[in-house]
Design a protein around this nucleic acid. Structure first.
Lengths: 340, 340
DNA sequence: ATGAAAGCGCTAACAA
DNA sequence: TTGTTAGCGCTTTCAT
């Protein structure tokens, strides 16, 4: 298998390489007829331009890179797909990279900038709070999707996310409304400033507003996986641990892990313990019992991210942080303690 | 932000570009001391080679590409991750591409071959049964993971998969053993030769062996999503449709969609209808009730695929089709009709 | 063991 | 509107 080059195509079409290049890049200054001729040859021989050569030379492309942190994240995947389809409706081209939880998105971004010369980058997932100046150095318009860039004060970085604190508060408020008083919080490690921390603060605020004191032992820490949530909740169900009648889980996956622990301890969801999740993945509606959750506006996040990025690319507009609302989805996983 | 080039590094290190290039590619014929010096400069200035330029010139790399069909596939994701970690233990480098359900993996492979010059390609998911000669043209060792290359007779294409027919038969056999007689089959479109078809044939064989006739109306067709499975099963539960006491679903996701339809019709899993899934994703153990399933050996598929590919790359061994066994995982989703 | 120099396939001035 | 040509940053002969 040996592929054709632009030179060979140009010979075949009886034009110069630059003319072929112009056709390839849809430049305006090329005769309609010549264009058609070249296009025909290209099609006929199944020519595909070598993108290495293209990007090696080209200063600026119409590529938008999406860097997704976490491959196995059911919440992010629909967002990626929506972003991709949005971008594909425009003149821009989307390029998606999945990176590992412990890879640095900034490093990947840097590599991508030299390799693909993108005009914009969307960072989806993760929590790149630190290393602010590295983003500035990139000089490429960036969007943080699902995480805030507030306070970073970089004029090439915008963000589209939810108000994590308010959303978490909404979840816990709902549990209080349903008559629960001992509400456990199932979440990740509390690091200053990130979403997890904000969600925790939201829960605390709800506790405060309802005049209840939070027993610190009711914070159950775990990673965002079924297994870890299961194990952590299982431990919290031991006789020596404080009792609770409801759990606010910081992700739906965690909520499902928690539910299994509850079942295996011979208890029922929601009769013994109610659960509310977070994110609003499709599975919540297919789980048994259906899982109450705080639904993040995935589609909106995707659309707003793409729109904002393109605006920033084209108008060189200044950075902007968009905060979107969440929706409380009720479900069978919550029992009302007040209803007789 | 402006990145260093090999030329600048060479100046900084007081050597020629070719020497830097040699160091970069770990060639043997370079003085240890020179090498250290260059490496130090590279590290100090955080130099990253431009991969476009590299691949533009380079004939052969140590890159293995993994082309994954279907981004939102909970069954494939752990396999990808395992492959990646396996490859990273060797001298090879993994490059992962997620493609859409309706993109052509062959086209992507072709593009990748010119762009990245991979020494091998793994195709994960999908069903590239047709277009056999296009694979031959690639001349690069390929592995089909989770689908068979049997009968394609290409000496650069090997495969690692399960025996879909036997696995499906095992599932339906189990339902028969549990005393079920009217077993519905929930699957995708039946296209000659692909996994779905083989699974269907396996189910038919089980029916035959158990001396039962299969009522064609018990084949419930749907795509491999919660929604579609839910809708299809919901329709099959209408009063005018034939009754059944068990479902064999061709994927765990379908099984969960089916379960919801059953719940919403006021019936129980497994008291009214038993369900067995396929694939063995983690969720089956976290679902309520736990879902019986046919577990594909994901880790093994990943390992064998990588091993076989590397063997083929290094020894130019002839193609080989590996068939791995599956495991029946029992679960609460199945009721024994014989036990009193 | 190292350097000089010729491209890899393409884009983007610059000329025509 | 089209052609000519000089690189983009790297690898790889071929000298030395």
């Amino acid at each position: 298998m040996t592929r054709l080059t632009i030179k060979e195509i140009s010979k075949l079409a009886n034009v110069s390489v630059s003319t072929v290049s112009r056709v390839l890049n849809d430049k305006s200054d090329v005769n309609e007829e010549t264009k058609r001729k070249v296009l025909r040859i290209i099609d006929q021989y199944g020519y595909i331009p070598n993108s290495n050569a293209k990007h090696l030379k080209q200063i600026c492309s119409n590529i938008i890179c999406i860097i997704v942190k976490g491959m196995q994240n059911m919440f992010l995947e629909p967002i990626v797909e929506e972003m991709q389809s949005q971008i594909n409706k425009t003149k821009y081209i989307s390029l998606i990279y999945f990176i590992d939880e412990n890879e640095s998105e900034v490093d990947v971004a840097y590599r991508l900038i030299t390799e693909k010369k993108p005009v914009g980058i969307i960072f989806l997932g993760g929590s790149p709070s630190l290393k602010a100046d590295m983003y500035k150095d990139m000089e490429v318009p960036c969007i943080f999707a699902t995480m805030s860039a507030e306070g970073m004060n970089l004029d090439n970085v915008s963000s589209v996310c939810i108000d994590d604190k308010a959303a978490a508060k909404k979840a816990v408020d709902y549990l209080f409304e349903m008559g629960h008083r001992d509400i456990a919080i199932l979440g990740g490690r509390l690091l200053d400033k990130d979403s997890i921390f904000k969600r925790f603060m939201g829960a605390m605020e709800s506790y405060r507003e309802h005049g209840e004191e939070f027993n610190e032992k009711l914070f159950i820490q775990s990673k965002f996986t079924y297994d870890e949530a299961y194990a952590a909740v299982d431990r919290s169900l031991q006789p020596d641990q404080p009792k609770y009648t409801a759990i606010f889980a910081m992700s739906d996956i965690m909520a499902i892990g928690a539910a299994k622990a509850i079942f295996e301890n011979g208890q029922s969801v929601p009769d013994d313990i109610s659960i509310i999740g977070f994110d609003g993945i499709a599975l919540t509606q297919y789980y048994n019992p259906t899982l109450a959750t705080i639904k993040q506006p995935s589609v909106d996040i995707a659309h707003k991210s793409v729109d904002l990025l393109i605006q920033n690319i084209e108008n060189k507009k200044t950075a902007h942080n968009i905060v979107l609302g969440t929706e409380l989805i009720k479900g069978e996983s919550i029992k009302c303690m007040l209803c007789r």
